[in-house]
Nucleic acid binder design. Structure first.
Lengths: 108, 108
DNA sequence: TTGACATACATAGAATATCGATGTATAATT
DNA sequence: AATTATACATCGATATTCTATGTATGTCAA
């Protein structure tokens, strides 16, 4: 509770997902590839990481989904909700503080 | 295995401990307070976080301990081993990459 | 002097997160 | 024809950290 480390680093997967969806609606498979690309290969999520996380965020109404059946393979597109945007802002603030603290501890 | 996120962010507690011990030998209670201070309050570890982690690092021979009975309350001092120093160097490299990737994903 | 708080170690159980494996199914490529 | 990529999903195992609890002593103020 008092520990921003736990609340911020451990839920970094959620934060990354919401940050991506703040840019544009995306579908699961696309998110995995985008994260890998934008991170220079540092983050390579498994489906077992991403999909449960998406479902959890949807239950919390931070994101919402819609099937796109017009593609060769059906895609489930996720978009950030207004509540999700607020939650994202909070998480980004916390994460910024934690990353700063981490830098002080490890690289100062 | 391919995911540096897991290997690096989830073991950040170990990395911080080893980094501190690279500076000087310290005892558990001291580590908790030092981490809180140097992180500006962002990291507030509980004993249930620190002590199991110290014991694990000792089993892995990354750190070693010695009791100091000369104090009012006995203290168990930990120091970084040579193997621990090598492991720390690896972890710092990985962590640097992951933090850079995180920054690209969240704040670029 | 008594009660509260800080020091200093430790462990056990619960909750959470992520991985690895597995499953289904179609599309595209070789 | 076989392999790889796309695209969804779930389950069980493992690891991490929290919360709670325990023991014991030292210090300080009311």
């Amino acid at each position: 509770m008092n520990n921003r480390n736990a609340d911020s680093l451990r839920s970094v997967t959620e934060t990354i997902i919401m940050k991506l969806l703040a840019g544009r609606p995306m579908y699961g498979y696309e998110i995995i590839r985008e994260v890998e690309e934008r991170s220079g290969g540092a983050f390579r999520w498994k489906e077992g990481t991403l999909y449960p996380c998406l479902h959890k965020l949807e239950v919390q109404h931070c994101i919402e989904s819609e099937w796109d059946m017009s593609q060769a393979k059906p895609r489930k597109y996720y978009r950030l909700t207004a509540a999700g945007a607020r939650e994202l802002a909070r998480k980004l603030e916390d994460t910024e503080v934690v990353l700063g603290a981490l830098h002080s501890l490890l690289f100062a």
